[in-house]
Amino acid sequence: MDFLRPASWEEALAAKAEHPTAVPIAGGTDVMVEINFDHRRPEYLLDLTRIGDLYEWEAGEHSVRLGASVPYTRIMENLRTELPGLALASHTVASPQIRNRGGVGGNLGTASPAGDAHPALLAAGAEVEAESVRGTRRIPIDAFYTGVKRNALAADELIRAVHINKADGPQQFSKVGTRNAMVIAVCAFGLALHPETRTVRTGIGSAAPTPIRATAAEEFLNAALDEDGLWDSGRIITPSVAKQFAELCAAACNPIDDVRGTARYRRHAVGVMARRTLMWTWESYRGNARTMEGAA
């Protein structure tokens, strides 16, 4: 095993081009577990922790350019206004120690359906900035997840940053686990209201081979909100609309039975979370002071 320690982004890209099998390591949350437990013996480890650029973020007019290694703790603390969904999701990641070190780049690189950031990224709308010595490209988040623990990156590409749309309305994130902290998602749900475009977006984690959006549910809700003029009136969403939205979200799942939960439960729980997060975000949109945003 070789340990590559590029001091700059350019060096990192060159190393990845020279050794396409090199495994990038930043927070170590996934890679070190695999090494400690003898599940993986990469030929090269490519340490990205020396590249300061990856730990920085920049808020633009419409989006935030979030460096791939910005720790979840920083997101929770500093980006609650711009990225409320991702801030909430960040707060559910593992433990304080992990949140101090892990970043969204790791979640994207591993592309596990259980990664906590995915539903929030899907709901907010995002693009992954991937780069290689060949050049830079932006991969829309909807096209990024290609299979179980597979993503759209080419062998010589590294994730430099994620461009996440700044919130133009309320966002929420919920995750079911069988413990009250430090738990991998049984399933998770992200929801973002986008009043500027009068749309809603969703994200579902751990309930299909990849993180997914519940597009049929989104379309249904977009139409329902539009038909009843709710974006303008700010009236409540009727229970029947919420129920149907929840059912469509559940129907979007394609879950499995595993040690963490049953497929049937996952579907059920996604439905419950969809309904609840819809109520929370809509109440917030209506400007209702009773809205509770959680403790992030």
């Binding site: 909430l88 707060h91 559910t92 929420q172 994130f173 919920s174 995750k175 079911v176 686990g177 413990r179 009250n180 902290a181 738990v183 998602a185 419950v272 979370m273 609840r276 109520m279 929370w280 509770m292 959680g294 403790a295 992030a296």
Partner: peptide
């Protein structure tokens, strides 16, 4: 219930 995972604000 659910703790930091933000699953309920009292509902249910």
């Amino acid at each position: 219930p659910g703790g930091l995972s933000n699953t309920t604000h009292g509902e249910g």
